[in-house]
Design a protein around this nucleic acid. Sequence first.
DNA 1: AATTATTTGTCCGTATGTATG
DNA 2: CCATACATACGGACAAATAAT
Lengths: 242, 242
Amino acid sequence: MPKNLSEQLLHELGSSIVQGKRQPGELLPKVETLSEMKGVSRTVVREAMKGLSARRLIESSTRTGTVVRPREAWLWWDPDIISWAAAAEENQSFLMQLTEVRLAMEPAAVKLAAKNADEEDIAAIRHRYDLLEQSVNSEDEWVAADAAFHEAILHASHNELMQSLIQTLQEGLYQSRHTTMRILQRAGDSSRRMALDLHRDVMTAVIEGKEDEARMRMETLLHTVSRLLKEYEAEVKKEAPK
Amino acid sequence: MPKNLSEQLLHELGSSIVQGKRQPGELLPKVETLSEMKGVSRTVVREAMKGLSARRLIESSTRTGTVVRPREAWLWWDPDIISWAAAAEENQSFLMQLTEVRLAMEPAAVKLAAKNADEEDIAAIRHRYDLLEQSVNSEDEWVAADAAFHEAILHASHNELMQSLIQTLQEGLYQSRHTTMRILQRAGDSSRRMALDLHRDVMTAVIEGKEDEARMRMETLLHTVSRLLKEYEAEVKKEAPK
DNA sequence: AATTATTTGTCCGTATGTATG
DNA sequence: CCATACATACGGACAAATAAT
């Protein structure tokens, strides 16, 4: 998947750090040694190192060598770091943290959308909602239509920073949720129909420019989905206990 | 300031892109040319490029060369990108967006703190508040004490992701605000005394575990400070109109 | 469809800078 | 002050990919 050798090595080293296989404070092998270990040139190793230090996972200094930086220095909002952390064995706590941020940001974004949406935005949102309505009977189409709807709302906030943030956030959640998503889909059309109503409520408030209304309805939507998720998780656990 | 040549070049190229001097879609000079232009080796150029592509500011492919990626692909939550954007000429819109995110995140973090703070956290928060109280008469000490107080609250949220996010956020705002800060400080002890009360209210709610109370009080605090800022900005503008 | 030109990607020998012992 | 060990920097060579001819 990675395009070139240095990206490959970057992912290998990066995930080993984020997943705790290399602890903060630990000294990495010197460039020459790594080059031999991985069978690549020093150039490739050095370029991978640049990727790691751009994410503040490591710090290099002459003579001392290259050490893994403490967790609080890491740039957690890098999509790769999030992806590596979400792919870790023990990721429950991390996913909860991601969810907490989402619960804070999405309603705020919708509130902004209600304030800032122009005619073009509203047309786009309406269109996405129609597509959502049409795909209420299809498991596969629903997921894509749902994402597109949220993206249209997000775009209407006219805040690039929030868009970027929520996007990386969603990707992180998505990666570790595709199994759970399947579970939710199994719930069938009825829960999707319920979700559809909640989506329409959000849309209406945005179109009418009712900021706080829009924010609260998004909160309701998120909490409902989260409750559904928990219920079905519990149910599955009951059916197949380990 | 930058430690080595490649970081120097990275900052030069990175800020020129973020500040719009090199537009999305534009083709960068090839490695060899850049190497000659800047008087550094190709190795240095290549390593700087790695830094830019880690931040998704550029994309390279063989034969085609290296192009500046569209703004929506950029990793906006990289501290360097934020710093470059905050240092731009036309940064009003960017600062507003940063502020909007802050207004969403800080109250959410305080709410979490009210939920999750343990004895240790509470002791730390109390301590920071005492320092804040003691520095109400000193312009210089206040800024540092205020930051420390917010950091202690943030730490009590027990959410590394939020901490990281708000920290980079604050650094971005701080960089472009140090002039405005001076203005606010000029307001004298009275406004600081008012702010102190608001801080105490937040602290109390956190200690008592009143989540929504804590969130709302932080919202009040932020809005009050923002209002004070605007008032003094307007006043200064009146005194010295351009 | 085959060839060529151009640019990134990769390798490596070598030299320099810097902090440690 | 010298020796050592590491990152940093330089540049020539070749490989791989792809747009243009």
